[in-house]
Design a protein around this nucleic acid. Structure first.
Lengths: 174, 174
DNA sequence: AACCATTGTTTTGCTAATAAAACAACTGGT
DNA sequence: ACCAGTTGTTTTATTAGCAAAACAATGGTT
């Protein structure tokens, strides 16, 4: 039975996908150009200036973005904190998908981009610990990865989607 | 530099979060009650009948839901296929977060629910292979997990979010 | 000065997903 | 037969996020 309070938490996120990319665009523009204006954000995201203007106005009202005396944008302390957490999650998810699960880079990039703003801080932190150990020079980790990859090559295939995943795991693993 | 075609793929998904849960609600109601009507879906999702009626009308138009001569709903072949892929992704992600990363069950449930409809079939399949091997009785997998968990307990902590994840991985891991 | 490009904003309209409320149709109890 | 409850739909309104278009302000070129 689905706890109905679970699926509704999707909307009650700190930030939306759109907001996440408005904020990260400002961050990247500050690095690339040294500044970020409404038009620069709009260009980076390939949306109209009007759309960016409205979204950024809301972000200024929320205190995530601050504006110069000359319409130059900057991340606030809170905005910077959010961008850091998003970029960290994106990086670790991309790394996991690409370097562990061996998905091609574009697929890893796309999927990481889709989930980066949805994962909790706990999940991001635990995943970071996991991937860090997995890709370290620890011999156990390296042996494990080698065996996993060799199994991948052996093409032991289920047809996806699997009907009952729990059954595949022998049911008693709880 | 963000490839701007990447982040826009977020909207171009086969199904939305809302649609995913309308479909899975029908699936679960069929199992629990043996039938599923508009009101049953609305109750299960805790939304109004009006909202469910409109969304389900669109799903009928898309051919994912079919309607009885007496307003009883059923998944079509396509709808069933989508539900299968969603439930499989949800199950494997939940299992990974809870049983590998040791996140509490509620957090695992919530995060899995958020990303289930966003992951590609490739990602779902690869993650299934990975978790299946990781939780198998293969001694290498078990040893790896034991070491990982012991490291977790040792509380080697970064402050999250980590500023530069790539730096943490020594940069040269590609 | 006249012109043009760029910038930022505002207004209007669109879609998806919801709530709220009104309504019609059916069902069951008395 | 009547009343009450349930069901499904429609209409109206809201919010987030976009486009398109109009507009004003600035800045540079000739």
């Amino acid at each position: 039975m689905m706890a109905s309070d679970v699926w509704k938490e999707y909307e009650s996120n700190e930030i939306s996908h759109s907001v996440a990319h408005h904020l990260t665009a400002i961050h990247e523009l500050m690095g690339d150009l040294g500044y970020a204006r409404v038009s620069d954000v709009a260009r980076a995201l390939e949306i109209t200036r009007g759309s960016a203007s409205l979204t950024l106005k809301a972000l200024k009202a929320r205190g995530l973005v601050v504006e110069d005396h000359n319409k130059f944008l900057k991340l606030s302390e809170d905005g910077r904190r959010i961008v850091d957490s998003i970029l960290a999650k994106r990086a670790v998810v991309r790394k996991f998908l690409n370097e562990v699960l061996k998905l091609d880079e574009h697929q890893a990039e796309v999927d990481a981009c889709k989930v980066e703003h949805l994962l909790s801080a706990q999940t991001g932190g635990q995943l970071l610990h996991f991937v860090h150990f997995l890709l370290s020079d620890d011999p156990t980790a390296q042996q494990f990865l080698a065996e996993f990859w060799s199994k991948l090559d052996q093409n032991e295939e289920w047809q996806w989607p699997v009907q009952d995943v729990d059954q595949l795991f022998n049911l008693e693993s709880r």
